[in-house]
Amino acid sequence: MSDAADRSAPDSQPTSIAFVDDHPTLLAGIASLFADDPRYTIAGTASSADGAVELAASGRPDIMTLDLSMPGDVFSAIRSIAERCPATRVVIFTAYADVDMALRALDAGAHAFVLKGRPSEDLFAAIETVKSGGLFVSPDFSPMLIGGFRNRARRERERPAAKLSAREQQLLQGLFEAKTNKEIARALGLTEKTVKHYMTNLMTKLKVKSRLEVVLAAKRLGSPYNIDGLAPDEND
């Protein structure tokens, strides 16, 4: 069946759409494109992030298309709409093929990311997809976005998950000062056995197997100490 035939067969309940963009000509053009389609009704238009939140709250549209380059905090607006109007699906419609912005928008609660300049079928496809509960990304942009997700996942895997306690920071300072377990124990008023226990727990928390790896992991956590004088591993 052709696109024209598909668009001529309305659902029993038309999908309400709101459009938000700060370019009046573009805004009018998009709205008119959907106004001629019996599957949709126009819930309203706005031209700013604050206007988008107000329109979502007052009109409760099924779908809202939203530009990223507008007055106001657009990402905050997306989060607000997702929290206050969860039935409204947000479709980002933007000229910016920027992976970080796309990730921020999707994290905030957007359901689709469509690039301006693509055929109008992309926007129609995005709306139909999110209406059915799916996610949509412009085909030309999806490989870049997948790469962004992979890079972020890799950074998360490499980032130590744990924050260090005050006592663990004291042990680290001893390591950075090239002290042995015995010297660290004396400085902290602990037994050497207790220091070894803390050191084992620290390695487990940071998912490492040596004192050097402890230091390197701590540096990724933002430890201010210098590692030049690191003491060697102790096996006793």
Rank of each mutant, 00 (worst) to 15 (best):
A87T: 14
D98L: 01
T194F: 08
H111A: 15
S69F: 00
L190G: 01
F19I: 07
L172F: 06
S120K: 05
E183P: 00
Q170R: 13
Q169D: 09
F176A: 12
R104G: 00
G148T: 05
E128F: 06
L164N: 02
P24Y: 05
I78K: 01
D100R: 15
K193M: 12
G117T: 04
G222T: 10
K193G: 08
E54T: 11
L33K: 04
D233P: 02
P10A: 02
L230H: 13
Q173E: 12
L26H: 09
I127E: 02
F149R: 07
H111D: 14
Q173L: 13
V74Q: 00
I78E: 00
D6Q: 15
T94M: 03
M70S: 00
L212F: 13
S132I: 01
A77G: 09
G147V: 04
T15H: 05
K205Y: 08
D236Y: 06
R104W: 12
Q173D: 08
S142M: 13
A97S: 12
E183R: 07
R152V: 09
H23M: 03
G229D: 13
R79I: 08
T200I: 10
R39D: 03
E213L: 03
E156M: 11
H197T: 10
D22H: 02
E83L: 08
F113K: 01
S165W: 04
G222H: 14
P160V: 02
F136P: 00
